[in-house]
Design a protein around this nucleic acid. Structure first.
Lengths: 127, 127
DNA sequence: TTTCAAAGTTAGTTATGACTAAGTTAGTAT
DNA sequence: ATACTAACTTAGTCATAACTAACTTTGAAA
């Protein structure tokens, strides 16, 4: 029952999740613009994500995350926020670079690392 | 003249560089074991790296880095060491996890980030 | 010097995930 | 109601980078 999520899947789920916060209805073109990919790339990705039970998507319709999909999206976004805080607030990397690199690194850090960063940030908040 | 190096190429170059520090002669099987890939994967990778002028490799012979190849290997390893110090020494992540994740993250950080981490570590050395 | 096992190569396959080209759908404007 | 356009899908291609199977080379032991 090992359902390994790829970097790419996590990116799509996270993007859908973030668009949903602002737009109520998420469409293929929104995702394509956010990720700088073409429409067919999104359609293809959604097909795979549907098969894995991570999104609901009817042809020409709106895109929604399933419970599992939203769980992964939130976890990924959580990592992103932690990494951004570390890179930007603590280490002093520019907002832009920190955002972009958090987006790349978020796919590679373990639960252990996430926890340790969280604790580290807590310690350094009141400094 | 944009010679983009992939994550995979960087891994091979870095591995060859590190083996060379210990073994004088680097062989296909050493690289395969280090990276946990098969021999044909290494042969294939070396062919591409040769074409890009990053390694010298004669059939059934030893593997050597060119000047350019060594430059990339050193840069990658430098990032690895910085990330390891950040993750392990500062944030407190276990040696094993820190090493593995530094190895993944090293391919995604910019010169800016590298510099900022270096400065950060310097500041926190005398603490 | 012959043989044989380990190392290495070649050829062909697979998976992922992007792309273009071409065709379909659906909703807005007339 | 019709037509038009933006959004979307389908089909097929390409690049990367791994893999297995089968064959070749090399060097060390007999």
């Amino acid at each position: 029952m090992k359902n390994k999520t790829t970097k790419s899947s996590e990116d799509y789920l996270e993007t859908i999740y973030l668009i949903k916060q602002k737009k109520r209805i998420v469409r293929v073109i929104d995702v394509a613009r956010c990720l700088s990919v073409t429409l067919p790339s999104v359609t293809g990705a959604l097909k795979k994500l549907s098969e894995k039970g991570l999104v609901k998507h009817t042809s020409y319709g709106e895109i929604e995350l399933t419970e599992n999909g939203e769980k992964i999206a939130k976890e990924t976004w959580e990592k992103h926020k932690l990494l951004f805080a570390l890179l930007h607030d603590i280490i002093g990397i520019s907002e832009n670079t920190a955002y972009k690199e958090a987006c790349l690194i978020e796919h590679f850090i373990s639960k252990e690392t996430e926890e340790k960063i969280k604790q580290f940030l807590k310690r350094h908040k009141n400094k």
